[in-house]
Nucleic acid binder design. Structure first.
Lengths: 232, 232
DNA sequence: ACTAAAATTTAGGCTGTCTTAAACCTTTGT
DNA sequence: ACAAAGGTTTAAGACAGCCTAAATTTTAGT
């Protein structure tokens, strides 16, 4: 209801800032200027300037030298972008045959050009999916997002059964590699062994069950649910 | 091969200028500054400035105070945008249930955000259609566009049989009205009567054949093929 | 506690695209 | 033939976003 809250049209760049701040700030702490700059591949002073504007529009709160937090309005706008991005990614893979490693860039451009109506039509055509192809939860139209609790594969104890639930959508190379190994969300596995000192993890996976060795770094980015599903 | 011709990335605004100039210049004569300004809803001096830049990039030829013409490269870029626009319009109506009166605006935004790959995937999914929902020809990937010869309904002689082939996609109001009357590309009709002094035309049309009276102005914007199809 | 390093902000500038006001050509009516 | 009208261009400036360099604040190590 405040004078600020009804600002309707956000610039492309504003949308990018809000989405980025949302991603950085998920863990709760304020987002740092330099993290935003890195994520957007922009110089830090540019971020300083833009953040001032965002905070004047009531989309973020900025304590100088401390960091940035989304306001209610900012969070809503950010989640709208996240929904767009994930619905688009799902649509492109499901309906237009995109590989899951190439959708990210396309979605990154389209999310700024699409109307709410198109997003809803795409979601409808897909049966209102709850997860995108990388396993990330899709916020609802009214900005509600599920926050499942996952364990990185690197931390699932040896002997445990689990299901791969989510992977990062950022690195196409990595995604292509995962696809080769059949490592996509929904796949079940058993942890057979793990070497100490940040060594690789061995899992049993796939239809003709097969052993797979996975390096520590990769195993840290694979988010899993452990066997007796406690998470909706 | 010239130094200019390899300029790869056109700004959103450049794309709009080229597409507009293409539309205005279809009839052959150079496009006027003021017509471009009107079409883009921009002040004339802005167009002057931009045209200078376009001509420095080798996309148009500009004879000051005379008008603008697309060069080969400019025409190619414009047709790429036209293809995008029309493929998108066709996709949205065919696959996502859009009405033909609401696709124009959506396409107008998307055409700048889409990659060539997405356009080709959409075209593929549609079976490489030759016409969009308004009956406009879709240029091929390599920039070939069909130029059918049509007659405005207002000029089809009384007694003649014809087929409605193309309508303008610009005015949603008009499109909704046409839809109500069942007047969409592909529909056949017979001209029953026409009043003089730019009066209305009466046609026989539809499955349960029905008489329809159409005002002169509207009849001028409905492009038809006359009965013994001479046009591919 | 104090200084060196790291992070952030301020200052000043650039580019792209738009604007209005004024100057400038071209066309056209008498 | 020439002046008014109309279209076009130049001039000057605004605004969004970006940049680098310099000044400032915070953090961290001794």
């Amino acid at each position: 209801m405040s004078a600020e809250s009804s600002k309707q049209f956000l610039s492309r760049s504003t949308e990018d800032y809000l989405k980025t701040i949302y991603e950085l700030q998920k863990s709760g702490e304020p987002a740092q200027t330099s993290s935003i700059a890195d994520a957007l591949r922009i110089a830090a002073p540019s971020v300083s300037g833009m953040v001032k504007k965002l905070s004047e529009s009531g989309l973020v709160e900025h304590e100088p030298y401390r960091g940035v937090q989304l306001t209610g309005a900012g969070r809503r706008a950010a989640l709208r972008m996240v929904r767009r991005h994930r619905v688009i990614e799902t649509y492109l893979t499901t309906k237009l045959g995109y590989d899951w490693d190439s959708v990210h860039n396309e979605a990154e451009r389209l999310e700024h050009a699409v109307t709410d109506e198109l997003v809803e039509r795409m979601a409808m055509a897909l049966g209102n999916p709850r997860y995108d192809p990388h396993g990330a939860p899709i916020p609802t139209k009214d900005g509600v997002i599920e926050v499942p609790v996952y364990v990185p594969l690197a931390e699932v104890p040896v002997g445990e059964l689990g299901e791969l639930s989510r992977v990062s959508d950022r690195d196409p190379e990595q995604l292509r590699f995962l696809a080769e190994l059949g490592l996509k969300p929904g796949v079940s596995f058993e942890v057979l062994a793990r070497q100490p000192f940040r060594g690789p993890t061995t899992i049993l996976i796939g239809e003709p069950a097969k052993e797979q060795v996975i390096g520590h770094e990769l195993a840290e980015s694979l988010l899993c649910s452990v066997a007796p599903r406690e998470v909706g």
